[in-house]
């Protein structure tokens, strides 16, 4: 993970997709357009300080917690930074012993919401993420485009430079007709499929990075 003080750290890029900002999705911090500056009064460590400051009793994972209703809201807010943290049940009905059933991991909505806000507010980090995505998508498009259009433009150039090629035949059919009437279409469709896969994978990676 890159140094959080320097969001433009080039070492954080990996295959064009930047490592997520370590401050993304961390609770207990009012949102500010400049995350690095806003974080300085907070303790810089990862998760334990916020955990201790909000829930007084240590809870082993899986146990049924018994919080006071006042601390519950804050505790659940803080616990969302850790996916394994169970949520408290309704504390107002102590007689009915409800078993807490966790069907899936807790919602990541606050996490992804924070990341979205960073993107939308065009913080330096959010803008950098988008610039990286644009750059890598453009690079793929240009490379694949050059591949296809290079091949297409090479065909008449070869005819011009080596006119003898036009006389060749393959199974009785002149090579130029095969090259021009048949060959380009599978090539273009194949490259189209390829680009589509690459672009969709990039976008999936980007979304995963934002939402985790």
């Amino acid at each position: 993970m890159g140094d959080p003080k320097d969001p433009s750290d080039p070492a954080g890029t990996q295959g064009g997709i930047r490592e997520p900002d370590p401050t993304l999705g961390k609770p207990a911090k009012p949102f500010a357009p400049e995350p690095v500056a806003a974080r300085s009064p907070e303790p810089p460590s990862q998760e334990s300080p916020s955990q201790e400051s909000w829930s007084p009793e240590p809870r082993p994972p899986g146990s049924v917690p018994s919080h006071a209703a006042t601390s519950h809201a804050a505790a659940s807010r803080s616990s969302e930074s850790r996916s394994s943290e169970p949520r408290a049940p309704e504390p107002r009905q102590p007689r009915i012993r409800r078993q807490r059933v966790v069907l899936a991991e807790p919602s990541r909505s606050s996490n992804s919401l924070r990341a979205r806000v960073e993107l939308e507010e065009q913080t330096s980090w959010g803008e950098l993420l988008i610039k990286d995505l644009v750059k890598v998508q453009l690079r793929t498009a240009v490379l694949l485009g050059l591949l296809v259009f290079g091949v297409l433009c090479a065909i008449p150039a070869v005819f011009y430079a080596v006119p003898a090629v036009t006389q060749l035949r393959l199974a009785g059919i002149p090579v130029p007709w095969l090259l021009l009437a048949v060959a380009p279409f599978p090539l273009m469709f194949g490259v189209g499929l390829w680009y589509n896969r690459l672009a969709e994978r990039r976008e999936r990676d980007f979304v995963n990075m934002i939402e985790h």
């Binding site: 007709w177 021009l180 490259v191 589509n196």
Partner: peptide, 21 residues
């Protein structure tokens, strides 16, 4: 003849460029 074959190629390649960019 053969020179006219560039029309279908160009018509189709346009969609590749459209898709890429």
């Amino acid at each position: 003849g053969a020179d006219a074959l560039w029309f279908p190629i160009g018509f189709t390649a346009g969609f590749l460029a459209l898709m890429l960019f």
